[in-house]
Design a protein around this nucleic acid. Structure first.
Lengths: 341, 341
DNA sequence: GCGTTTTATGGTAGCGCTGTCATTATTCTT
DNA sequence: AAGAATAATGACAGCGCTACCATAAAACGC
């Protein structure tokens, strides 16, 4: 019989046809039970469910996806997993998807738009229901694919720009600006900035620019800045502050692109005996748990990473069709006064 | 013509047939070019590649997966993403997969074997080439699925047990034991333990047991222990140490299940003026960057999370067939002396 | 009571791709 | 130079499922 092709399959992996036969219904009815779709008599449903349990049937999603020209996959493209920000976003996404049929498929771009484009294309091959990426900045090819596809798109983290479909995040430029205003108001005047390689993280750059703008408006400017070559880390923050202070000892506050580096800055101060806040203010970004667990909690800005991921995933599930109107959701942020600046 | 079913598809999404027609070859030949499989004349390959570029063809992996009864997906089931350990593992997996056709699909189980089982089944529906999970402990149903499937399986983190196929990790029991030996040798006698809810993380429990064993062998035992209800965090570590010292002020060393909590312990000491190491030793687990960036680096054990993920993914790719022999890879660990114990 | 709607089920024809086998042109042996 | 191996391509039949339409039975309306 027509089992000749089955040689390459697992021994007797049951199919929907097997389930249907055992339950004494047609394939399509069994299919409807599996998908909980369309009207099914209770008795029928029970028979099919029993057959499924008895055979240990597992639906073949590749076949389903092919037949229905769609899947329950949600592609998630993140710049990095080292930066705790993105695991937090991912948790939010996961939380929103937990009770649904959707599954996240993740890819990591290393902050490289070309890598993002490559991974995007390989994800499109699975006909995902939705795509989540970070930022509003993509290659022209990637943007074209995003615009023309039959799937929802959410661009996370930043909202300063023109999204393809949905943007969820906050204004990083504004956050940087507010950082400057906040610190100026608290009396700081001689600003330093200890960042990391600019090829990483557009958002950090936007905050930096916002900071500079606020300083300029107040008739100030950055007295000194140092950029650690390579990605951000606590050690990078510690080293950067040391270098910064060696070249410019008269700073009264240093802004870091994130809490990890700011923590490193605090460790440097502790090491060389600088009184944080009195002698030197330290300001971070993200509002990580660890910074708030210090007896002297870190002054920083709380970004709502989990909320961003969760909101985006929920919004994407609202409708399969892309609406006419683009959606921009501002999850905002909060300045945490803390005790370090 | 036979386009009636196409109504529900994207307007003119090109298929392999379109590519083949444009290139003037058969579908199979075009398919072979796409998959870089079988002998193809250079001229033919070029024509097909041009046609692909011209049409913007993206292969449909659902169709490919269905036809070949296999996919290039690698299912990854992790207990959590909050615990930095697992993003690290994921980075390792991702690194190993970057230059291959394989893509990771992740699921988060929240340390719940039943959730693990549920997600596992939904992943199996995509006919993954391999499955990665954490730990060697699964539900009977999950274990049965893992054993009978036509895919490779890697169980990560722990190696104290009987894997389905491949295990990559370290002995957590031994690590706990060595922690005890190390601290006893350094003169500590009055041990405290500040952990978290036991329903989380089998590995932490194994380390705890190893620690107790080493104490027992030395004629000692835990003088006091406290378990924070809920998951681990820096704040949990800080609070737990406070509670622990309130009930038992005479401790000379406290062991934490991980660096996050140990950092919290150090913050508590700083807050109340306890001299770490002289008055109270603090010992963690994981060897996180942030702990080593302090001027007084944390005494801990370096677990090789990235290496575990990378090694596992590489090993899985070595052969599609599950070999007769099970593989156990011990990635080991290193005691970091540090300055806190 | 007779049309009309609703509920429950089934037949058929693909979805887009690849495994299998077959075929022809080309190169290699001895 | 005859046979054997190799390279390059193609025809065809599904993979397992679901969209689409059709049908039959039950419930409803007035």
């Amino acid at each position: 019989m027509s089992r000749k092709r089955n040689a390459h399959r697992s021994p007797d992996m049951p199919t929907l046809a097997d389930v249907a036969r055992l339950a004494g219904v047609s394939e399509i009815t069994a299919s409807r039970v599996v998908r909980a779709q369309g009207p099914i008599a209770d008795a029928t449903r029970t028979r099919v469910l029993n057959a499924i349990a008895e055979l240990g049937y597992i639906p073949n999603r590749a076949a389903g996806s092919l037949a229905s020209a769609g899947s329950t996959l949600m592609s998630v493209l993140l710049p990095s997993l080292s930066n705790i920000v993105f695991p937090d976003v991912l948790r939010g996404i996961h939380t929103a998807l937990t009770q649904t049929a959707f599954q996240p498929v993740i890819g990591v771009t290393d902050y490289d738009p070309l890598v993002e484009e490559r991974i995007l294309v390989s994800f499109l091959a699975w006909q995902p229901a939705a795509i989540i990426l970070a930022g509003l900045h993509h290659t022209p090819t990637a943007r074209r694919h995003l615009e023309h596809g039959r799937f929802r798109v959410a661009e996370l983290m930043d909202i300063d720009g023109d999204p393809v479909d949905i943007a969820v995040g906050m204004s990083h430029r504004q956050a940087g600006y507010d950082t400057g205003r906040h610190l100026i108001q608290r009396g700081y005047r001689r600003f330093g900035y200890a960042g990391h390689s600019v090829v990483f993280d557009d958002r950090a750059t936007a905050r930096y620019e916002g900071l500079c703008t606020s300083l300029r408006e107040a008739g100030l400017s950055l007295v000194a800045e140092h950029r650690h070559p390579g990605p951000s880390s606590t050690m990078a923050g510690r080293d950067s502050l040391e270098i910064l202070l060696a070249t410019e000892p008269g700073l009264d506050v240093v802004v870091f692109p994130n809490d990890d580096m700011a923590m490193g800055g605090i460790f440097h101060c502790m090491h060389v005996g600088i009184t944080v806040k009195q002698q030197l203010g330290i300001f971070g970004f993200n509002g990580l748990d660890i910074g708030q667990a210090m007896s002297m909690p870190l002054s920083t800005i709380l970004s709502k990473r989990f909320l961003i991921g969760k909101t985006a995933a929920e919004k994407l599930l609202e409708s399969r069709e892309r609406p006419e109107e683009k959606t921009i959701i501002n999850t905002g942020y909060e300045i945490i006064e803390g005790a370090t600046a």
